[in-house]
């Protein structure tokens, strides 16, 4: 009897890059197992919000997932949100490549939660989307009140960058931007600003405080239930999808930048000096707090691997 693996993503409708990625992963698995394994695919919001879908993965209702890490089960997952670990694509991709320090750290953290880490699926560097103007320095940023995700260390980071931060539920953010409850949306890659807020925001400052990535994962019990050959098929499929994204991510991000500009919006890259100033300010303020959040040991790992810059 054919076994069925249930695959989902929490951030990507059918036809989106993430949606296509899990479809490709599923196709790889089916092809490599000669139909021994069948797959069922669930896209963003089909099985609920981000947290709910992650619950399903944790409980084994879903077997495989391309997920954006949730910190409710293990705070240490926030390691990937440590601000200004890197600001260049090649540094970030190196950190997330197989067997690199970050991948090894995530491997351990995910295993402790009963999940198998199968690779990163990078999206790119985030920034700050704003309405009617933008800021390139800590001083200028204080004029903007921006929404931050209610997860550490996002608030701490955006606050260290000089912005006023505010809590607004994602479901109400669109109208909150329209009416002026907040002036911007912080901490997302430009894809989300294009997708959700292209109508209401006008500026995007690519401040690159965090490198955001999805994670390809399996529920550990589902994983252990597979034969060695099947595990090999799942892992090889994940690696293929991951490497494809390593090649495609930057181009995709550039594509969203293009769409953003075509909407008549302004897109702001920081100069080297502006970036250096922001980076040192934020590192100085937020990194000490990260020690409490993810543990001194993991933070030591971060420091050792990023101190060069």
């Amino acid at each position: 009897m054919a076994e069925t693996l249930r695959i989902a993503t929490d951030s990507g409708a059918k036809g989106s890059a993430a949606g296509n990625a899990i479809e490709a992963w599923a196709a790889e698995i089916e092809a490599a197992t000669n139909g021994e394994i069948e797959t069922e695919i669930f896209y963003q919001n089909e099985l609920g919000g981000q947290q709910e879908v992650f619950d399903l993965l944790m409980a084994g209702d879903l077997d495989l997932m391309l997920n954006w890490p949730m910190t409710s089960y293990d705070q240490r997952i926030s390691i990937i949100y440590t601000p200004y670990m890197f600001t260049e694509w090649d540094e970030a991709l190196a950190a997330y490549s197989p067997d690199s320090w970050m991948s090894q750290a995530l491997n351990g953290i995910y295993a402790d939660s009963g999940l198998k880490f199968l690779g990163a699926w990078p999206e790119g560097f985030n920034g700050v989307g704003t309405k009617d103007g933008h800021a390139t320095s800590v001083e200028d940023a204080s004029a903007f009140k921006v929404r931050v995700p209610p997860v550490a260390p996002f608030t701490e980071t955006i606050s260290a960058m000089g912005y006023q931060t505010a809590t607004v539920d994602w479901g109400e953010l669109y109208s909150a931007l329209q009416t002026g409850v907040v002036d911007g949306d912080a901490a997302n890659v430009i894809f989300y600003e294009v997708e959700y807020f292209g109508d209401v925001l006008t500026d995007y400052t690519h401040s690159r405080q965090q490198f955001l990535t999805g994670i390809l994962t399996a529920n550990m019990e589902s994983w252990d239930g597979l034969t060695a050959d099947q595990q090999e098929a799942v892992a090889a499929g994940a690696e293929k999808v991951m490497l494809a994204q390593f090649d495609a991510a930057k181009a995709a991000d550039d594509g969203y930048v293009q769409t953003w500009k075509e909407l008549g919006h302004s897109y702001v890259e920081l100069s080297d000096d502006q970036m250096a100033a922001l980076r040192s300010t934020v590192r100085e303020k937020v990194w000490p707090q990260m020690d409490n959040l993810i543990g001194a040991e993991l933070m030591e790992l971060v420091r050792n691997n990023t101190s060069a810059q």
């Binding site: 409708a13 896209y43 919001n45 479901g171 997708e195 109508d199």
Partner: peptide, 18 residues
């Protein structure tokens, strides 16, 4: 508007929310 359902639909079908 505003409508949370319409926002979800717009996002699921990649249309402009407005």
């Amino acid at each position: 508007p505003p409508s949370i359902t319409m926002i979800l639909f717009a996002v699921a079908t990649q249309q402009s929310v407005a």
